[in-house]
């Protein structure tokens, strides 16, 4: 058990971080390269002002018409995404690991809050799952990969929650937790989770076309 732990938290973690960082850089660079090669005109339409205007209207809850039309989805998705990003970075026990390995630290979330946020992420995933099964318009466009992606995202939080509470067998679950986290990191550049990388670009482009050429709002 100990050696497996050593392996997943050592070399495998390295691999995961390298694949994540390298994959993200590669994806974004490849996207921009394709634009440069095939649709260079896009650059000439890009505008910082309109891009940011559009991005802000879509990352602020209820600032877009559609987010007001789906209030529950809007609240869930914002809570989900914020927790999803903040918890792994600002969890005390994660910061301790960074401190031990690299001697760097930063402020941590109170453990109680992080615990609540973890539960919120898990519940959000259940909500997304239910949407996929219940709502016809979501069901129609759902493929197996959508369930896999949801599972990949939920797994680190479920296992992390279990391990944090030190329930029976938690040292084994801890290994699963580390593995799940690594899988999620790697999945970001290599699955539809890459919307994390691409969303700013698609939004900025649509914002620039609407703001600069069409003189209309796109939110």
């Amino acid at each position: 058990m100990h050696t497996i732990y050593q392996f997943v938290s050592g070399p495998l973690a390295w691999i995961a971080f390298i694949l994540f960082a390298g994959g993200c850089i590669y994806r974004v660079a490849a996207l921009l390269h394709t634009v440069y090669q095939k649709e260079r005109f896009i650059f000439s339409y890009m505008s910082w002002r309109h891009s940011l205007n559009s991005i802000f209207h879509w990352i602020i809850p209820f600032a877009s018409v559609n987010s007001r039309k789906h209030p529950v989805m809007t609240v869930v998705t914002f809570v989900f995404h914020i927790s999803l990003i903040l918890v792994p970075i600002f969890l005390l026990s994660h910061i301790v690991l960074w401190d031990e390995a690299w001697n760097i630290t930063w402020p941590a979330l109170p453990d109680g809050l992080a615990d609540v946020m973890t539960v919120l992420v898990i519940l959000s995933c259940v909500f997304f799952l239910a949407r996929r099964i219940v709502l016809p318009e979501v069901k129609y466009v759902t493929s197996a990969s959508d369930y896999v992606i949801l599972a990949i995202v939920a797994a680190p939080f479920i296992t992390g929650f279990y391990a944090y509470h030190q329930w029976p067998g938690y040292s084994f679950v801890m290994i699963l937790h580390i593995l799940a986290g690594e899988i999620m990191l790697i999945a970001i550049p290599f699955s539809r989770l890459r919307h994390m990388l691409f969303s700013v670009f698609t939004r900025a482009y649509m914002g620039s076309e609407f703001g600069g050429v069409r003189h209309a709002r796109d939110w």
């Binding site: 394709t34 649709e39 896009i42 989805m73 318009e137 979501v138 129609y140 466009v141 759902t142 539809r192």
Partner: peptide, 18 residues
């Protein structure tokens, strides 16, 4: 005849139905 737009639109869509 297509490029980054088509690719990004296909790969970014999270099938959310919104």
């Amino acid at each position: 005849e297509t490029g980054a737009r088509l690719q990004a639109y296909v790969e970014t869509c999270v099938h959310c139905g919104l």
